[in-house]
Computed example of a mutant assay.
Amino acid sequence: MKLLKILSVLAMPMLMAQQSTRFVYQVTLTPDSTNTEKKTEQAYLDTDGKKSFFYAENTLKRDSLMERMRATKNFDRTQMQNLRSNMQFTIEKDLTNQSLVYKSRIGRDQYSYNESPVFDWKILPETVKIGDYQTQKAETKFGGRTWYAWFTQEVPLQDGPYKFSGLPGLIVKVQDAKGDYSFDLMQTKKIAEVQQPQTRGQFINLPKNKYADMEKKFQKDPMSFFSSQAGGGGRGPAGGGRGPSFDPKQQQERQKQMEAEIKSRNNPIELK
């Protein structure tokens, strides 16, 4: 395992003293099982010790870019495309009761679901130093995958990247057994306050299984979400609203583009 140097600019004993902290993770993922090329980007875990937000770095950059574009009224789609992420979600955790809210967009609408994932961690005897931290290995099964995590008790925070939490210390690294997904802590720094990505409009909260059904419908017929949704009305593909109109050729091109994009995301982090 390649050891990554962790640049720490915050004294760890002060972490829980009501200061906000940003843990920067390098995320390596294989979203397309038919293409072994791995994608790499960074993600942030922002926390004040009571709650945390996990989201892609590009999400924050897109928010800043959108603010500048609105201020200058100069919209550049190319710049926005360059900041696309393979992690198009935000996870807000309540660290007190180990619950979370998963937020993402399907079509034109924003959806969320609540979850209290149970991680049956098996703490293993293996220890290794990763960067500046002495870590211990643990194993669990989640979302149809076997996961291995390395946590450190030097940071007394029962949290980690994505939905992972519940170990007696911060998760410094976590990866699945197949090597499709890996989260590696790269940097720790103080921030003025816990941030969450900007949102426009309301989230439609669904049970997790209903959210999964909505995602499957979108994957089968993505254009129906755009042709029938009323720009954030939250009525899904059967809502009967009036969305943007496309000429047949434009609609066909858009359909092909979206189908290709969906096809390239056939290896989700949660398989079930």
Score class of each variant (00 low, 15 high):
G49W: 02
K50P: 04
K50W: 07
K50F: 03
K50D: 08
K51N: 11
K51W: 11
K51F: 14
S52H: 03
F53Q: 03
F53A: 06
F53R: 02
F53T: 04
F53G: 02
F54P: 01
F54L: 01
F54V: 01
F54R: 00
F54C: 00
F54E: 01
Y55Q: 00
Y55F: 04
Y55E: 00
Y55N: 00
Y55A: 01
A56Q: 00
A56N: 04
A56I: 01
E57C: 03
E57L: 03
E57A: 04
E57D: 03
N58G: 02
N58F: 01
N58W: 03
T59L: 07
T59Y: 01
T59C: 03
T59K: 07
T59F: 01
L60R: 12
L60A: 03
L60P: 06
L60T: 06
L60G: 09
K61A: 10
K61T: 12
K61L: 08
R62Q: 15
R62S: 09
R62C: 05
R62T: 13
R62V: 15
R62D: 03
R62P: 02
D63Q: 12
D63H: 09
D63W: 02
D63V: 05
D63P: 15
D63I: 08
S64V: 11
S64L: 09
S64M: 15
S64A: 15
S64G: 12
S64I: 07
L65W: 01
L65M: 12
L65K: 08
L65S: 14
M66L: 13
M66S: 11
M66Y: 13
M66F: 06
M66P: 03
E67T: 07
E67Q: 09
E67I: 10
R68C: 11
R68K: 10
R68W: 06
R68G: 13
R68Q: 08
R68F: 10
M69H: 09
M69Y: 04
M69I: 13
M69L: 14
M69F: 04
R70T: 05
R70M: 11
R70G: 14
R70H: 07
R70D: 07
A71T: 11
T72I: 12
T72Q: 10
T72Y: 06
T72D: 13
T72E: 14
K73L: 06
K73C: 09
K73M: 15
K73I: 08
N74K: 14
N74Q: 12
N74Y: 13
N74M: 11
F75D: 08
F75T: 06
F75E: 08
F75P: 00
F75A: 08
F75Q: 14
D76I: 09
D76K: 10
D76L: 09
D76S: 12
D76W: 04
D76Y: 11
D76P: 00
R77C: 14
R77A: 11
R77T: 15
R77W: 12
Q79P: 02
Q79M: 09
Q79F: 02
M80C: 04
M80D: 11
M80H: 15
M80F: 05
M80N: 07
Q81Y: 10
N82Q: 14
N82H: 09
N82R: 12
N82S: 14
L83E: 05
L83A: 05
L83M: 07
R84L: 07
R84T: 10
R84V: 07
S85D: 01
N86D: 05
N86G: 06
N86F: 01
N86S: 03
N86K: 02
N86W: 00
N86M: 02
